[in-house]
Computed example of a mutant assay.
Amino acid sequence: MTNPVVVVATLVAKPGQEELVEKTLTAAVPAVHAEPGCLRYALHRKAGATGEFVVIEKWASQEAFGAHLKGAAMREIGAALAQALAGPPQAEFLDAIPTGDPDAGAV
């Protein structure tokens, strides 16, 4: 069995671009949810930080995650936000440490 890929991605909007970033990310969510292997793609805003967005992602496999990165939704996000972000998105990859209840103890 393939281990799922868990990613926490952070995107920071340039001042004045917060609304564009939020609208672009929100609009992409349904398309990403429909991608093969998408187990979770949840958009958040960092508490107290208007322009900092965090996406918690879980993909069925490395292949599914790789296809997502090359997919239409990511191309559209990249094009729309090319000048709106303060820097490139930052991604943290997580390895689960299974413990306790399988549903409550893992993303």
Rank of each mutant, 00 (worst) to 15 (best):
G100H: 01
C38D: 08
E35S: 06
A67N: 07
D103H: 15
A64R: 04
D103Y: 13
P102H: 02
K58M: 00
V5T: 03
F53W: 07
P30T: 12
H44C: 12
T24M: 11
L81D: 14
A96V: 08
V21P: 01
G78M: 01
P30V: 13
A13R: 04
V6I: 15
A31Q: 15
H33T: 13
A91S: 12
P98K: 07
V55C: 07
E57R: 00
T10R: 01
I77N: 02
D95R: 03
H33L: 15
A27R: 13
G71A: 10
T50R: 09
E76W: 12
G48I: 01
E52A: 08
I77M: 00
A9Y: 00
V12R: 15
A86N: 11
P88D: 09
A64Y: 08
Q17I: 12
V21S: 04
H68P: 11
K46R: 15
V8K: 08
A79S: 05
A9E: 00
E19V: 13
G87F: 12
G16N: 01
N3R: 14
N3L: 08
D103A: 14
T24W: 10
E52F: 06
H33W: 14
T10H: 06
I77D: 03
P102F: 00
A27Q: 14
E92W: 05
I77E: 04
V12C: 14
L20S: 06
V55F: 15
